[in-house]
Deep mutational scan, measured.
Amino acid sequence: EIHIRTNGEEQARKVYKMLAKRNYDVKIEQHNGQWVVTAS
């Protein structure tokens, strides 16, 4: 499982799309105001 911390919604969405293209199961979560993308 991969966790990627991003500094904002826009970046989180870019990372989300990139990983989704590679057939990862991707989730975006917010932790303490930080956007974290989780891929498995």
Rank of each mutant, 00 (worst) to 15 (best):
E1M: 14
E1P: 10
E1Q: 13
I2S: 02
I2P: 02
I2T: 04
I2L: 08
H3Y: 13
H3S: 11
H3W: 11
I4L: 05
I4V: 07
I4M: 04
I4T: 02
R5V: 14
R5N: 05
R5M: 12
R5E: 06
R5T: 12
T6H: 04
T6P: 03
T6R: 04
T6L: 14
T6V: 15
N7F: 12
N7R: 11
N7D: 10
N7E: 09
G8M: 10
G8H: 13
G8P: 01
G8T: 15
G8Q: 11
G8F: 14
E9L: 15
E9K: 09
E9F: 14
E10S: 11
E10D: 09
E10Q: 10
Q11K: 07
A12Q: 01
A12D: 00
A12W: 03
R13I: 08
R13G: 02
K14M: 08
K14E: 09
V15A: 05
V15G: 00
V15Y: 11
Y16T: 04
Y16L: 08
Y16K: 07
K17E: 15
K17G: 07
K17C: 15
K17L: 12
K17R: 10
K17D: 15
K17Q: 14
M18K: 09
L19A: 02
L19R: 00
L19D: 01
L19M: 05
L19H: 01
A20W: 05
A20M: 13
A20E: 10
K21M: 12
R22E: 09
N23T: 04
N23C: 15
N23V: 04
N23L: 09
N23Y: 15
Y24E: 03
Y24L: 09
Y24D: 03
D25G: 05
D25N: 14
D25L: 12
D25W: 10
D25R: 12
V26A: 05
V26P: 05
V26W: 02
V26T: 03
K27Y: 07
K27M: 06
K27P: 00
K27S: 07
K27L: 05
I28L: 08
I28Q: 01
I28W: 01
I28M: 10
E29Q: 09
E29V: 11
Q30L: 11
Q30S: 06
Q30W: 10
Q30D: 05
H31I: 15
H31W: 13
H31C: 04
H31V: 14
H31R: 12
N32L: 06
N32W: 05
N32R: 05
G33N: 06
G33Y: 03
Q34M: 11
Q34H: 11
Q34R: 07
W35F: 05
V36K: 03
V36M: 06
V36N: 03
V36G: 03
V36Y: 13
V36L: 10
V36T: 06
V37K: 00
V37M: 01
V37T: 01
V37D: 00
V37S: 00
T38N: 03
T38K: 08
T38D: 01
T38R: 08
T38Q: 04
A39P: 02
A39N: 04
A39R: 04
A39G: 07
S40E: 05
S40K: 14
S40D: 04
S40V: 11
S40A: 08
S40L: 10
S40R: 13
